[in-house]
Design a binder for these strands. Sequence first.
DNA 1: TCGATGTCTAATGTCGACATTCGACAGATG
DNA 2: CATCTGTCGAATGTCGACATTAGACATCGA
Lengths: 214, 214
Amino acid sequence: MAIIKKTYKDQVVDHVYQLLLTNELNPGDQLKETLLAEQMGISRAPIREAMKELIMNGLVDYRPQVGNFIPVFSPQQIIDSYTTRGVLEGYAVMSACALFSTEEIDKLENLTVQMESYAVKKNHKMVIDTGGEFHDLLISKCDNVQLLEYTDRLSLKLHILFFKYWGKLYSSTEIGGRHRKIVESVKAQDLNLIEKVVRQHYVETGSKIAEIEG
Amino acid sequence: MAIIKKTYKDQVVDHVYQLLLTNELNPGDQLKETLLAEQMGISRAPIREAMKELIMNGLVDYRPQVGNFIPVFSPQQIIDSYTTRGVLEGYAVMSACALFSTEEIDKLENLTVQMESYAVKKNHKMVIDTGGEFHDLLISKCDNVQLLEYTDRLSLKLHILFFKYWGKLYSSTEIGGRHRKIVESVKAQDLNLIEKVVRQHYVETGSKIAEIEG
DNA sequence: TCGATGTCTAATGTCGACATTCGACAGATG
DNA sequence: CATCTGTCGAATGTCGACATTAGACATCGA
């Protein structure tokens, strides 16, 4: 039973994700309901439904009576978004750091090594995937539904809108070093340090991307 | 020029706010589009638009193909929501605490005194309003748009969904003491302390409400 | 008896058409 | 020349009707 029925709305959302990830949509572009509806052979109703979801996840800017636009971020706003992710993830990791098993810590260390290795080989896709796995595991012990909701949304937003820059982000030593610092702080169960290094990780990531984008 | 034209959608949103604040809607209730449309004399389209906005702000739970419901929170979820607010506000205040003028610090202290005074008189409405002003001023120096967006949304959600409990929350000494601690930490420019006391304030608030509700 | 299956209903999902509004541009006005 | 105003087009906002589906209930069979 692999067939998952999707509503038109969901298909539209996926469609826009693809358009963003393949750079067919750029910051400032307007998503015209009529046009999208024509292109997908459906009516405007599900397009509008999809827009609301995209807006909710921060992937689309809405201007009443005018339309929906791919957001344009200033360098500072990029930094702000990553900073916010860091604040949320920092707390998530810190608040549940006692719950990691030794196997999971090992896993985190292995992922770090893999990431470095992929970075050396310039296999950016795998760097990103491994990084995703790392951060997912890192926050997996947190059970604050509200906080995770925001973390996930922000994660999706940053992933989709800035995916194109991630390849240029790190040298292999930087990416390894940063993640190693996080693992070390968790191993040490140093609450203050955990929040500090996680935040730092995201602020630096955001700054780098803001630099590239600006 | 005080007349602000509102779209039907906005009127629906306001209508639901009112229903929630006046306890005409309770956790678990379904918001049926057809019924709301009839009651307001409009079609389902703007009702659906309004639902999306309410969902985005966390005031309504959406179940695909089933409907929209007033959320039911477990005590733990209530605590989680307040905790998250504390994490966000704690960072907001901490990151911009150097920007407060002495006049603004004075204002914060005055608001604390007023709050205490209203609490003594059991004037709950004014306690809440003054408290709102206090926290608004507290985060006003933060310019992280992304973080403030989440803070505001969460604020609205907690305000509207748990408004009914706020009256029972504090004794006058508690409410004064808690807010005084925050002001003191800001005056001292003690970054770690600021985050700690702000978080503590919200965790305790959330716990109290969870206790009442549970 | 109890679980699987069929049917029904009330709610959401989608449609195409019409109403309304924002923003651009041309022309009037000082 | 700058600014104000009116018109116009293209986009969103709203409508009423129809399509589809989740969940409740009745039915059937081991």
